[in-house]
């Protein structure tokens, strides 16, 4: 059993309207010193077996096919320790 984390973020050049709205809300809540917020998605993928290279390659394929839209998003795959 292993848990693999897929983080999906908008590409840097894509306007993140939601992240901007969050950033604008922070000063109103008393949080200062934040210059920007970007919002993304985190997927926790539970594997039946170990997170070996074959399994990770499958997860990367999942990310590319479904979890992320690579037209607008980048993703990273990490194994949770």
């Amino acid at each position: 059993m292993a848990r693999v984390i897929v983080d999906v973020m908008l590409k840097p050049e894509i306007l993140d309207a939601q992240g901007q709205a969050i950033a604008r809300a922070l000063p109103r809540l008393g949080f200062s010193g934040v210059s920007a917020v970007r919002q993304g998605k985190r997927f926790e993928v539970e594997l039946e077996g170990p997170a070996d290279e074959a399994a990770l390659s499958d997860v990367r394929k999942m990310a590319e096919t479904l979890l992320a839209n690579t037209v607008i998003e980048d993703f990273t795959v990490t194994v949770e320790a």
């Binding site: 894509i14 306007l15 309207a17 939601q18 709205a21 839209n69 037209v71 607008i72």
Partner: peptide, 17 residues
């Protein structure tokens, strides 16, 4: 159609949310 890559680009949350 965009998700299926039959059309280029993508549609995102309206700028004004």
């Amino acid at each position: 159609l965009c998700e299926a890559h039959l059309l280029p680009g993508a549609l995102m949350r309206n700028a004004g949310l």
